[in-house]
């Protein structure tokens, strides 16, 4: 097995563990795969209280052995989290900017995550307006650039709440609960629709097609748009 392929495989395993640990996804790894990750010190055995336990399960017999599970080590967590972030960022970029089909998004994102450097990662993240969820509605772990709120790179995706009167943009996605989704349905705010900002004070007022809609800042900050250059 080539080295590159091997790391890629390990990385994919790591992502699964992460999703298991943080998003309650079922874990479908074989014992040998787990052992391999353990050998790299990416994961460790913990007992049901989350405390690390030494590999002495055999001494206490079969019963005890069943009670431990695997958890990411600090090192593993760092790597896994970054991978998840890259994957979801890639998805975001592919679906928002390149408008790739759903299948293709998944396939390409799986390749992207292994090759994006930190610099590129930050550029993409900034370009996309530091998105917080992927197109499937899952959380994107924050990167350093999100915390710094980096702005040097020219952005393309903005929250509606960041736009100024006169700005025009195309809706890319909306995040938020049922409430907001339902309102969005009612007023016809769907991906692909073009919005024009009319006012930002005292309340946001936007024009969609021939109707004007007023919305609060807490709603405006959940609508992500690609700003048109004027």
């Amino acid at each position: 097995m080539k080295i590159k392929e091997k790391t890629e495989k390990l990385e994919n395993l790591l992502k699964e563990i992460w999703e298991h640990q943080f998003e309650n996804k079922d874990l479908n790894l074989s014992l040998s795969e787990l052992k391999e990750l353990e050998k790299e010190e990416y994961i460790e055995k913990v007992d049901k209280n989350g405390k690390r336990c030494e590999d002495n399960g055999y001494k206490h017999g079969y019963e005890l052995q069943k009670q431990y599970t695997y958890k990411l080590t600090e090192k593993g967590l760092k790597v896994a989290q970054n991978l998840i972030r890259l994957h979801r960022l890639a998805e975001r970029m592919l679906s928002d900017l390149l408008e790739t089909s759903d299948d293709e998004v998944e396939r390409s994102a799986c390749k992207f995550e292994h090759i994006i450097s930190e610099e590129v990662e930050e550029a993409i993240c900034t370009l996309l307006g530091h998105p917080t969820i992927c197109p499937h509605g899952k959380k994107i772990p924050k990167g350093k650039c999100c915390e710094r709120g980096m702005k040097e790179i020219k952005r393309m995706i903005y929250r509606l709440s960041e736009l100024k009167p006169g700005d025009v943009g195309e809706v890319k996605y909306i995040i938020g609960g049922d409430e907001i989704m339902k309102k969005a349905i009612a007023l016809g705010i769907f991906p692909g629709k073009t919005l024009r900002v009319i006012r930002v004070f005292p309340t946001f007022v936007v024009q969609i097609a021939n109707s004007q809609i007023a919305l609060d800042e807490n709603v405006a900050s959940r609508i992500y748009l690609m700003r048109h250059e004027i």
Partner: peptide, 9 residues
């Protein structure tokens, strides 16, 4: 919850 303001003009 705080109310969501969203209204057509």
């Amino acid at each position: 919850e705080r109310p969501i303001f969203f209204i057509e003009l």
